[in-house]
């Protein structure tokens, strides 16, 4: 009743029972929204949440010779956004992050000369679905 009184006072149509005045007049907008929704069903990219499949040096490996490179193999193409190397006992974490480049499933990064010790590698990557994955693994370099 109040809705009807309000609409009449404003010189407009009487609202339908249940829903008020706005819905019937919004059909063109709703059609546009449905079209937009259909357009959004087109796949945006191939791939999903990237996670680390394997690395060289491998996680928990013990090496006799210092590696010159670090290789990361991801489950999907991803953009590496952060990479750091931390030697046990060293207060400073060494950042190895290259400038973000094209998405890749395999990344090879040159390592600085390493001395004996236990190392922790931390990485972060942007996946195709927009999510940021992260992880870490360690390896040990034996003293000669």
């Amino acid at each position: 009743m109040q809705a009807a009184a309000l609409s009449s006072a404003a010189g407009t149509d009487t609202p339908a029972p249940g829903l008020s005045y706005a819905w019937p007049r919004m059909f063109p907008g709703i059609k546009l929204a449905l079209l937009a929704a259909c357009a959004l069903t087109v796949p945006l990219a191939a791939g999903a949440h990237a996670h680390l499949l394997r690395s060289t040096p491998a996680a928990a490996s013990v090496l006799a010779v210092a590696p010159a490179q670090l290789q990361l193999d991801f489950s999907e193409t991803a953009v590496l956004t952060s990479l750091s190397l931390e030697r046990s006992g060293d207060p400073v974490r060494q950042k190895l992050t290259p400038r973000p480049g094209a998405p890749q499933a395999r990344l090879v990064i040159e390592l600085p000369p390493l001395v004996a010790g236990s190392y922790l590698v931390r990485w972060r990557a942007l996946s195709a679905d927009g999510h940021i994955s992260s992880g870490s693994f360690g390896f040990t370099l034996q003293a000669k």
Partner: peptide
């Protein structure tokens, strides 16, 4: 964005 944006079943999952 997110999981549904790249999933193979996107035409069904996004709606």
């Amino acid at each position: 964005t997110g999981h549904t944006s790249v999933a193979p079943g996107r035409p069904v999952l996004a709606p």
